[in-house]
Amino acid sequence: MALTLKDLINKQIPLNGGHRMCGGCPVPVIVKQVLMSTDHPKIIGNATGCLEVATTIYPYTAWNHPWIHNAFENVAATVSGIEAAHNALSRIGEVPEHNKDAKFIAFAGDGGTYDIGLQSLSGALERGHNMLYVCYDNEGYMNTGIQRSSATPIGANTTTTPIGSESYGKTQSRKDLLSIVAAHHIPYAASTSPHNWMDAMKKSKKAIETQGPTFLLYFAPCIPGWKIPSDVWKKLSETAVKTCFWPLIEFEDGKWSLTGESKLIAEGKMPKIPVEEFLKSQGRFKHLFTDKNKHVIEIIQKDVDKSWNYYKGLAGY
């Protein structure tokens, strides 16, 4: 199946309108990109979080796939159970024709993945379930009102790392989740961003079609959490990639590579922009643009460069 918009518009959309995600939230777009990347029947598990809450306010559901929410920290285990059920029911001929070739997809935010759900994710990856786990990473606990998570970057103003006379926001680096996931030696893992829909959908397709556990780390700007207007996230995502704040990475059969803009930057075919460009349009970093805090921008730049150089090295540049 070719991934062209002309084809895609004729297909069943996974998530109907009428859901109550914030106006302009990219997460429904992420769902669309992942689930429309192949024609397989799909069974979806969703961790507690914005996506779960806002798409299934009883008695309404936006989902056109079989879908389950269990709890916050256990979507990987829940989907493990569904996949195991499919294996067992297949053996005794109880899977109906329309679900014979089903794929199993988990969606969770960064809180449900980096933090409270890390154990459940690790267990599922190690056991080798045939599932794709998608983490939409908006860099904080946005559903509960913008608290820091281990995915929140240095310098971000959140409600549990508020700025004050003694605080410039979060002081720690983001957790390197992609490397943690890759350390499970699963067949496929990647980071991507919804602005580059072709990169995202190719990776989604590959992840879904690969046998065994696969993982996608998706950049997901948050309108209230990052204090940005509702119509800028596509541009902002692109800037995140072009500053190397959010490199597009692939880990396939034990080999690392870069894709999209990140590949061009590594090859010197596209300039690497200073991280300031990414920070300056977001309310959560506004306090950094003062005399008192501007040194933090340098700290962030160093943090970004360190991570970028690490992954560039892994990818052989």
Binding site: N16, G17, G18, H19, T61, W63
Partner: peptide
């Protein structure tokens, strides 16, 4: 069980 049996019925909700 709290199940919603009509897939995609959020289209009846006008945002």
């Amino acid at each position: 069980g709290g199940n919603i049996l009509e897939a995609g019925n959020s289209q009846h909700y006008f945002t």
